[in-house]
Design a protein around this nucleic acid. Sequence first.
DNA 1: TATAACTAGTTGTCTATACCAGTCAGAAAA
DNA 2: TTTTCTGACTGGTATAGACAACTAGTTATA
Lengths: 239, 239
Amino acid sequence: MIDKTSPMPLYFQIEEAIKQKIDKGEWESETMIPSEREFAENYEVSRMTVRQAINNLVNDGYLTRQKGKGTFVSAKKIEQKLLGLTSFTEDMKSRGLRPASRLISFQKTTAENRVAKALEIKEDQIIYEIKRVRLANDIPMAFETTYVPSDLLELNESHIKQGSLYSEVENAGFVIDYATQSLEASISREAESEILEITKGAAVLLIKRQTYLTTGRPLELVQSVYRGDRYKFMIDMKR
Amino acid sequence: MIDKTSPMPLYFQIEEAIKQKIDKGEWESETMIPSEREFAENYEVSRMTVRQAINNLVNDGYLTRQKGKGTFVSAKKIEQKLLGLTSFTEDMKSRGLRPASRLISFQKTTAENRVAKALEIKEDQIIYEIKRVRLANDIPMAFETTYVPSDLLELNESHIKQGSLYSEVENAGFVIDYATQSLEASISREAESEILEITKGAAVLLIKRQTYLTTGRPLELVQSVYRGDRYKFMIDMKR
DNA sequence: TATAACTAGTTGTCTATACCAGTCAGAAAA
DNA sequence: TTTTCTGACTGGTATAGACAACTAGTTATA
């Protein structure tokens, strides 16, 4: 499992071995992984070498250490890293609210000019268009429209209904690299007012997000209309 | 400089010592810092301990290593990270607009409850209250109110008019550590409408920012009302 | 029974040492 | 003069061991 004659550093090999077990689901979230001393004995390396491997994985967010207890597999990675940026679900949970979604429509269609530009595709290319109402404690919070190029992923309604779009992205072997987001204040139009259960002309927060893969290709364009009276966008910038 | 009897880990003390030299400007960007072996000898600790300190600073983006050459101070970090978060001026410049300010009022007053809580001071404590209109290409963009505890800094009108508040902070030897920000959509009230030259009831973006020093003390509370029709808040999340 | 002390297991900190792998300048050889 | 080599520097990898700090369960004690 570990090749001491390889030019690859031992700690790196151990790192990959652990990452694989996590990615393959052998070690699930919250699982305690073997202790540093166990690793050291099994792989016949020093404990410090094991620590270097684990340290890197902790820095990358794969693992969490707890003094006196052990080292544990972190919750899913993408959700953590782009927290608040990608996931309505996580955003609401962190505020102590119960998130839910109601699918309004799901269809394949051709990209109109504005969307095509954002997704860097041709105007007549087929895309998925997903419209959802996002709820917190059963109160409508936002109206969200997502656009995804259909040549990237194979999607159907059940994917959207039960799980995260991002787990599908992962399954397809794609990795999200970064996202850009814009926020602006506006006044609700007729269409949104009804769905969000607010009066026409009420304040709304328009959030537009574009997510990019490590390949450089845009994965999605998400446009959300949040209720101004119920939603506050929070952001922390450290050091 | 390093206290071996302290309960603080040695690597942490070394970390802080290096950070200080960087923050104080003693070691500028691109400067090569002493080698790991030098540190070890000077502080009378093992090289591995020095490496742990440096590793953390590399992970935090303060330093970069180059095998065979040395370890170097990274380009300025605070400006990078907090850019667009702290400075209206920089924000506008990056959009190709010409920023300007018009001072509406500058006074010493006592903190009301809400402000006192945010600044973590007592309700009757003296604070500066600075009200400004922020302009971009001579068009009113935002109405900004800043609150700063008066025991932290000595401020007067000319400080505000000519320069940045932040250069005063620096002069006083303080270092900004992090900031939290919230954004929400609302409807303009009478008072702002006039100043921002918009109709009452137009969409506005309320931005509230709290800035904290490395000492843990809040430096300022800033409340801004941005015109919804002219301002879009942009944010990039990488990795 | 309730509390205190112990114990085995965990990660955290630290040492002293060794050798490997790039970098660069100056000495030696062509 | 130009090229090559050598040596002294840098950070990178790895070892073996020690003790501290914390956790949780067990055992001894009041």
